[in-house]
């Protein structure tokens, strides 16, 4: 069972292979089949949780500044690679590594805002979007210099022994960690944005920058915090998925772009939508890869993205901000 699970994991998280589920289907009994579906759902929810966190990062910056921050992808890679360096190379305690990696990437996010974004001579949205693309390349190139191009593993937070579930399915503890940490992150964000003064100030800035500035909110500082937050969120996503899928200097690109698709699916800028979008996308991808074809696994998210843009561009939970002209 462990080996079979490992193989499934491998197929779902690495490059598409041609060995289709359909081919093995004849050999499987019904029990196996339902187990497999359960497995796909667990995997789908796990990856969906990651997309949701990443989508949240995109949303926070979008709400604060109106830009699409493509450097979000690099935050994920950096989180994973920081974790790898600390835990595997320097043998630092897991909890401490988690903390340092998250704060480290949050700082990088903040530096991006303090440096290039704030000092850009043109504040046009289109220029700033391009700037995040450039920054993302600089970060990715630097990461490649520092860590090379190999995929590296990070040890799971609490062992690799699968836990048996009711109904015969199994789950690797790391999946539970992913769910738990995602829920915790979401609750913290909810608390922050609904209950604290700073969170309210950030929401005010998102609604109307000028009005926020008029009532004494430092819009610049809110933008700075939004970048730091997205950095931290990206890092957390990269860190918790690393033990399952391994990590490398460019893992963040696909995860990040799919997280972006999840944000659009949920409704760009909408926090509840980010969670919903992430989970739906994760499930679609995992079930699609398992039952239809693993070759087009990566295409599923982007196909959904196009469908949403064409059919309901405000996303599932959108407020209808996007007017037609």
């Amino acid at each position: 069972m462990i080996t079979k699970f490992a193989r499934l994991e491998f197929e779902l998280f690495t490059k598409p292979s041609k060995s289709d589920f359909l081919r093995d289907r004849q050999r499987l009994t019904f029990m196996d089949f339902s187990q497999q579906i359960a497995q796909y759902i667990v995997t789908g929810l796990t990856i969906g949780a990651i997309y949701a966190i990443v989508a949240m990062g995109f949303n926070i910056i979008h709400n604060a500044t109106g830009i699409v921050n493509f450097a979000q992808c690099e935050f994920i890679s950096l989180g994973g690679m920081f974790m790898y360096s600390l835990v595997v190379l320097f043998k630092v305690n897991l909890m401490i590594s988690f903390f340092i990696s998250t704060v480290g990437v949050a700082l990088i996010g903040a530096l991006i805002e303090i440096g290039p974004i704030r000092h850009a001579r043109s504040k046009e949205i289109i220029i700033l979007i391009f700037l995040t693309i450039g920054l993302s390349e600089v970060l990715r190139g630097t990461a490649q210099e520092v860590w090379g191009t190999d995929n590296v593993g990070v040890p799971a937070f609490s062992g690799e022994n699968p836990i048996h579930l009711l109904g015969g399915g199994t789950i690797v503890p790391q999946h539970i960690w992913v769910f738990a940490i995602t829920v915790l992150v979401m609750l913290m964000l909810h608390y922050f944005f609904k209950k604290t003064l700073m969170g309210k100030a950030m929401r005010a800035t998102a609604v109307n920058r000028k009005a926020a500035a008029l009532v004494g909110i430092s819009v610049n500082r809110m933008t700075l915090f939004s970048f730091a937050f997205s950095g931290a969120l990206g890092a957390v996503a990269g860190i918790i998925i690393a033990p399952i899928s391994t990590t490398s200097y460019d893992t963040g690109i696909m995860l990040g772009l799919k997280g972006f698709a999840a944000a659009i699916l949920g409704g760009y800028g909408n926090f509840a939508g980010a969670i919903l979008g992430g989970v739906i996308l994760g499930l679609l991808e995992s079930l699609g890869a398992g039952l239809v074809s693993s070759q087009y696994k990566d295409a599923i998210a982007f196909f959904v993205l196009l469908l949403v843009l064409f059919l309901k561009p405000t996303g599932i939970m959108g407020y209808g901000e996007s007017e037609r002209v």
């Binding site: 972006f260 659009i264 295409a299 982007f302 843009l309 561009p313 996007s322």
Partner: peptide, 23 residues
């Protein structure tokens, strides 16, 4: 469909389309 909308929807559509075509 994407240019009928105000804002930067084309960047998202072309991003998704580009990756699908490449796959």
């Amino acid at each position: 469909p994407s240019l009928k909308l105000r804002g930067h929807y084309l960047v998202m559509a072309t991003l998704g389309f580009g990756i699908i075509v490449n796959i």
